[in-house]
């Protein structure tokens, strides 16, 4: 499988990364090189093989329902590029 320029743009938008017009063809070539590299996987017989979900057999531990966190507004907002009255501030979002 290989990707065309339109796909490169669609993927870039899905990933929210702007790609300039002269950058796109390079990216297309690189992506196709990688996709070409992984293409050999199609030759592997995976009939009836379970996909790996956890690399080691472990059971997921669960937490008790207790309030152990929060009330750290300063820590939450400490690195915010823009903040106001305890909120993160972003350019207006139109729904």
């Amino acid at each position: 499988m290989s990707v065309d320029l339109a796909t490169v743009r669609r993927i870039a938008h899905l990933a929210r990364i702007s790609v300039s017009a002269d950058e796109a063809p390079h990216l297309q070539n690189e992506l196709n090189a990688i996709l070409g590299f992984v293409e050999e996987l199609n030759s592997v017989d995976v009939e009836g093989v379970e996909p790996m979900t956890s690399v080691l057999p472990m059971r997921m531990k669960k937490r008790a329902d207790e309030i152990t966190d929060g009330d750290i507004v300063e820590k939450v907002l400490a690195n915010a590029p823009a903040r106001e009255d305890g909120f993160f501030v972003v350019p207006k979002v139109i729904e």
């Binding site: 966190d69 929060g70 507004v73 820590k75 939450v76 305890g86 993160f88």
Partner: peptide, 11 residues
């Protein structure tokens, strides 16, 4: 109050 019931995980 805003962002008081927020852990580092939630953020």
């Amino acid at each position: 109050e805003p962002n008081t019931h927020v852990s580092l995980v939630d953020a």
